Lab assay of single mutants.
Amino acid sequence: MTTFKLIINGKTLKGEITIEAVDAAEAEKIFKQYANDNGIDGEWTYDDATKTDTVTE
């Protein structure tokens, strides 16, 4: 398992969460579901060097 981080730069929700996932694709799926569940819809970027997804509304 690898640690992945999501940075949220939303209009109403800001912060970050960290998860353990098998790979980047699994982490992205989990993060996008989390964002959807919390009403966050924005531009996504991924930095492989830091294993960090960022969503900005």
Rank of each mutant, 00 (worst) to 15 (best):
residue 9 N to R: 09
residue 23 D to F: 09
residue 17 I to L: 12
residue 18 T to L: 11
residue 33 Q to G: 04
residue 7 I to N: 01
residue 18 T to R: 07
residue 20 E to N: 08
residue 25 A to Q: 12
residue 35 A to N: 01
residue 21 A to H: 05
residue 15 G to W: 15
residue 19 I to G: 00
residue 14 K to E: 07
residue 46 Y to F: 12
residue 22 V to W: 13
residue 12 T to M: 08
residue 52 T to E: 05
residue 23 D to L: 02
residue 32 K to V: 05
residue 39 G to T: 03
residue 51 K to W: 09
residue 48 D to H: 11
residue 35 A to R: 04
residue 55 V to L: 12
residue 34 Y to L: 07
residue 34 Y to V: 02
residue 56 T to H: 08
residue 42 G to P: 03
residue 40 I to R: 00
residue 31 F to I: 05
residue 19 I to D: 00
residue 7 I to C: 13
residue 48 D to F: 10
residue 55 V to E: 05
residue 8 I to P: 00
residue 13 L to I: 14
residue 35 A to I: 13
residue 28 E to T: 10
residue 54 T to E: 07
residue 54 T to A: 04
residue 10 G to S: 10
residue 5 K to R: 09
residue 26 E to V: 05
residue 14 K to M: 08
residue 27 A to F: 03
residue 8 I to G: 00
residue 4 F to D: 02
residue 23 D to Y: 08
residue 41 D to W: 13
residue 56 T to K: 06
residue 41 D to C: 15
residue 51 K to Q: 12
residue 38 N to T: 04
residue 39 G to F: 08
residue 51 K to D: 03
residue 6 L to S: 00
residue 42 G to V: 09
residue 15 G to A: 15
residue 1 M to R: 12
residue 53 D to P: 08
residue 39 G to W: 07
residue 44 W to R: 02
residue 15 G to P: 08
residue 44 W to I: 03
residue 25 A to Y: 11
residue 32 K to Q: 09
residue 16 E to N: 05
residue 30 I to W: 13
residue 11 K to I: 15
residue 44 W to T: 06
residue 15 G to D: 09
residue 50 T to E: 03
residue 51 K to S: 05
residue 50 T to S: 11
residue 24 A to I: 14
residue 31 F to K: 00
residue 45 T to F: 11
residue 1 M to W: 07
residue 48 D to A: 12
residue 36 N to E: 14
residue 46 Y to C: 13
residue 46 Y to W: 12
residue 55 V to H: 04
residue 44 W to L: 01
residue 32 K to G: 01
residue 31 F to Q: 00
residue 12 T to G: 10
residue 41 D to Y: 15
residue 56 T to P: 05
residue 26 E to G: 04
residue 29 K to T: 08
residue 4 F to T: 01
residue 25 A to L: 11
residue 56 T to C: 11
residue 6 L to Q: 01
residue 30 I to M: 06
residue 44 W to Q: 01
residue 27 A to S: 01
residue 57 E to F: 06
residue 43 E to V: 14
residue 6 L to R: 00
residue 34 Y to M: 08
residue 9 N to D: 10
residue 53 D to V: 15
residue 46 Y to A: 02
residue 28 E to H: 15
residue 9 N to E: 07
residue 10 G to I: 13
residue 54 T to G: 05
residue 17 I to D: 00
residue 50 T to G: 07
residue 39 G to D: 07
residue 22 V to A: 13
residue 10 G to D: 03
residue 3 T to L: 11
residue 53 D to L: 15
residue 16 E to I: 13
residue 34 Y to E: 02
residue 56 T to S: 08
residue 15 G to N: 08
residue 9 N to A: 05
residue 11 K to L: 14
residue 38 N to W: 14
residue 8 I to T: 00
residue 43 E to M: 10
residue 33 Q to I: 06
residue 56 T to W: 06
residue 17 I to K: 00
residue 53 D to I: 15
residue 46 Y to H: 12
residue 16 E to C: 15
residue 28 E to M: 15
residue 55 V to R: 03
residue 31 F to R: 00
residue 33 Q to N: 06
residue 1 M to I: 08
residue 22 V to T: 11
residue 36 N to I: 14
residue 16 E to Q: 12
residue 21 A to G: 03
residue 48 D to C: 13
residue 15 G to R: 11
residue 22 V to C: 14
residue 14 K to S: 08
residue 44 W to F: 05
residue 36 N to P: 01
residue 27 A to E: 00
residue 51 K to F: 11
residue 26 E to T: 12
residue 14 K to W: 13
residue 47 D to E: 11
residue 17 I to G: 00
residue 10 G to N: 02
residue 6 L to I: 09
residue 43 E to P: 04
residue 40 I to Y: 03
residue 32 K to R: 14
residue 43 E to K: 09
residue 12 T to Y: 14
residue 52 T to A: 06
residue 48 D to Q: 10
residue 54 T to M: 09
residue 17 I to E: 00
residue 27 A to Q: 01
residue 49 A to K: 10
residue 42 G to H: 07
residue 7 I to T: 02
residue 35 A to V: 12
residue 7 I to D: 01
residue 27 A to C: 12
residue 47 D to P: 05
residue 48 D to Y: 11
residue 53 D to A: 15
residue 52 T to N: 03
residue 10 G to K: 04
residue 15 G to I: 15
residue 43 E to C: 14
residue 2 T to L: 13
residue 44 W to C: 09
residue 14 K to F: 09
residue 31 F to S: 00
residue 26 E to F: 03
residue 38 N to M: 15
residue 26 E to D: 08
residue 48 D to M: 09
residue 42 G to F: 08
residue 11 K to N: 14
residue 8 I to V: 07
residue 3 T to W: 11
residue 18 T to C: 14
residue 57 E to I: 13
residue 29 K to C: 14
residue 50 T to Y: 06
residue 48 D to P: 14
residue 3 T to C: 15
residue 48 D to I: 13
residue 53 D to H: 15
residue 46 Y to N: 02
residue 18 T to V: 12
residue 49 A to T: 10
residue 32 K to D: 00
residue 31 F to D: 00
residue 28 E to C: 15
residue 16 E to R: 03
residue 30 I to T: 02
residue 54 T to N: 04
residue 22 V to S: 11
residue 42 G to E: 03
residue 35 A to F: 05
residue 2 T to W: 13
residue 12 T to F: 14
residue 54 T to R: 05
residue 47 D to L: 06
residue 4 F to L: 02
residue 32 K to W: 08
